[in-house]
Simulated scan of single mutants.
Amino acid sequence: MRRESYRDRALVVRTHDFGEADRIIVLLTRNHGIRRGVAKGVRRSKSRFGSRLQHFVDIDVQLYPGRNLESVTGADTVAYYGSGIIDDYERYTAACAALESAERLATAAQEGDPWLFDHLTETLARMQQTKHPTVVLDGFLLQAMTHAGWAPSLFDCAQCGAPGPHHAFHPAIGGAACVQCRPPGSAEVPEEALHLMWLLNHSHWPAALQLVESAEGGHLSTTAHRLTRAHLQWHLEQKVTSLGVMDQT
């Protein structure tokens, strides 16, 4: 049975060179989830659309279904988010972490749900000018985990529901932990770090940035990032390589 080609909006989340001139493209599409395709001849200088099949470009892509890989037969630029990102190392590494995390999170998303794609494009647009790219990344991750159904509890105890604020956090029980429920190895955290995470999770950006730029903001944002990363990787059950690269800088 011959399957029809189709078009969708997409962001490139990963690429691999294939053969002498082709490239394997991993796409987060708006309406079809993750798609893996081959773009033939795009590494040649005369390629019609090879320059569009790169990170930080929102494209209108045409795909033809295949047995193992789809064929990328066309791509038009909708928006370019690389300006302000690719020339700033901190923004670049944070944006790459957002792309890789989105690919991992998309495996749990349902086809036809445009939320993750839309959320990622909004994050890349915000990343272009922010002074706090790691904070923007953490907002993306927390909201994406909420959409996936495993947001951390940031006020009430995740185990027994005792009202907070609490001063311990462990991803194994789902976030904040009271004195009675905290398991061994729980992180001791200031309640304001959990409050910052709550603000980011609910898109209260002005209040979150005011907290980040306060006297204790550096410590709070570092703690919030560490907890967000721990919760993400616990539930994904795999490492997000780009997050490790970020934390080495």
Rank of each mutant, 00 (worst) to 15 (best):
M127F: 09
P114D: 13
L194A: 02
D156T: 13
A177E: 01
H166E: 03
G161I: 04
Q110S: 14
P206K: 11
F155T: 12
D118N: 12
T146V: 07
P163F: 06
L194M: 15
A162F: 04
A125Y: 11
P171S: 13
L137V: 07
L196G: 02
T121N: 00
C178L: 07
L200F: 11
P152D: 03
A215K: 12
G218I: 02
V179Y: 06
V136R: 11
G174Q: 08
I173Y: 02
G174I: 07
H202A: 11
L196S: 02
L194C: 08
Q110I: 01
L105H: 03
S214W: 14
H195P: 01
Q210N: 13
L194H: 04
R104N: 05
E111M: 05
P163S: 14
C181R: 08
P133Q: 05
G112C: 04
C178F: 05
A151W: 09
W115C: 03
L105F: 04
H202Y: 13
E216W: 06
S203T: 10
A148G: 11
T134H: 04
A168D: 05
L142A: 05
S153A: 15
V179A: 15
H132C: 00
S153D: 09
D156L: 07
D156V: 06
C178A: 07
A207V: 08
A125M: 12
L196H: 06
F169C: 04
H166L: 08
A106G: 01
L199S: 03
G217V: 10
S214I: 12
G185D: 14
P171G: 12
D138N: 14
G139N: 08
Q110M: 06
L154H: 10
A193G: 09
S203M: 08
A168F: 12
G217K: 09
H202W: 12
T130R: 05
S186Q: 02
H119V: 01
H132K: 01
A208S: 11
L200C: 10
M127D: 08
H204M: 09
L124T: 01
A176P: 00
H132R: 07
L105M: 09
D113Y: 05
R126W: 08
H170N: 11
E111C: 01
Q210M: 10
L196V: 06
T121H: 01
Q128H: 03
E111P: 03
H166F: 05
E188Q: 10
H202D: 14
V135G: 03
S221P: 01
D156R: 12
V189Y: 05
V135P: 00
P114K: 13
S186A: 15
M197W: 14
V189W: 02
D156I: 06
V212S: 07
A193I: 13
S221C: 09
A162K: 10
D138F: 13
S186C: 08
P152Q: 09
P183D: 11
H170P: 00
S214D: 14
E192Q: 10
E192D: 09
I173E: 02
A208W: 09
S214R: 12
G112H: 02
L154F: 10
A162T: 09
P152G: 08
Q210G: 15
